[in-house]
Structures are given as C-alpha cells and as structure tokens.
C-alpha cells in the first residue's frame, strides 16, 4: 500500500483550520455496535423505551467514548500515517441523541518553534445538526517535516 502523507509540519500555521468531518445521523445500530465493543450494557445508549421511562430523555444517547473515537478518527486521518496523536483532552458539553449528527473540527493554536520536536496544539470542537456544541477539547499532534 502506498503511504499517503498529505500534511506536513512545515505547511501548517497557527490559525489554520483542521478539515471538519461529519458523522451520523446516530442510529441504534451505531450505538449497539459500540456497546458490544465496550461491553457496556447501559440501556441509556440503545433502549428508547427504557430511557424514556427511567431517564426522562426523549431517546437514547451516544456514549462519550464513541464520540471521542470519531473525533480521534478525524484527527488521525488528518495527520496521516507518519503523524502521531500525542495528547487529547475532551469535555462533553451536550448529548448526541438518536438521529443527531456529529460534526468535528478544530484549529491550530500553537506550533513548536523547534523543528526537531514538530508538535502543534489545536482546539477541537464537536457540534450537532443545530450547531450546538456537544464537546470541546484540545489536542497535541506531531507531524512529519519535509526535511
């Protein structure tokens, strides 16, 4: 397989946007697949009737770890096979309900001045189809240099 490295440390500057990525709408198949992987049998994540009766929500919601996995997919796809996700902090601010979409994006806020340690810090954010924030966070990414 050909190595496709599309982004390099030298080409990225503070203020640049990370390419955004949209997932969903969230279905029961999505949440059940995740529940199976995580062995997390909380009805909150897949059982509409249980959630309405016991939690007072309109329907089930995505697990926080699932949303984080999608955010990480966006980041690792962007940095390419020679990049490395070094650090990620995430704070969940609003639920993703059945039928909601999740759009993740970000912005470079700082860049290493030392080319031998080519990291950059980014703000990341997730929003739903109503443009409401669902999570916020920061990450540190390491990118290869052209040299």
């Amino acid at each position: 397989m050909q190595i496709q490295q599309r982004v390099f440390f030298d080409d990225v500057e503070p203020g640049d946007s990370l390419p955004s990525r949209e997932y969903g709408p969230l279905t029961v198949a999505d949440t059940v697949r995740w529940a199976g992987l995580q062995e997390n049998w909380q009805e909150l994540h897949y059982d509409r009737d249980w959630v309405r009766e016991h939690s007072g929500l309109r329907t089930f919601i995505a697990s926080g770890a699932y949303r984080q996995a999608l955010l990480m997919r966006m980041l690792t796809d962007w940095i390419g096979p020679r990049g490395m996700l070094r650090k990620l902090s995430v704070r969940h601010t609003h639920s993703t309900f059945e039928g909601d979409t999740m759009r993740f994006g970000g912005r470079v806020i700082e860049k290493s001045r030392d080319p031998s340690d080519p990291w950059m810090a980014c703000e990341v954010e997730g929003k739903n189809q109503e443009d409401r924030q669902i999570l916020t966070g920061r990450c540190t990414l390491v990118l290869p240099s052209h040299q």
Binding site: M1, I3, D30, R33, L37, A69, L70, R73, T76, P81
Partner: peptide, 26 residues
C-alpha cells in the same frame, strides 16, 4: 478481532491498525 470490531463501530479503517506490511513500511 477486537480491532476489527473497533473499525466496524467507528468506520476507522486506517491501514495502520489493519495492515502489518503497511505498518512495517513505516
């Protein structure tokens, strides 16, 4: 198999997690 289930759940079919030869080339 665990990784395959992760890929199924997230759609994250990155060759780094799925292809030994690709990972070795890096």
């Amino acid at each position: 198999s665990d990784v395959r289930r992760y890929v199924d759940a997230t759609g994250d079919a990155n060759p780094l997690w799925l292809d030994d030869d690709f990972a070795r080339s890096l």
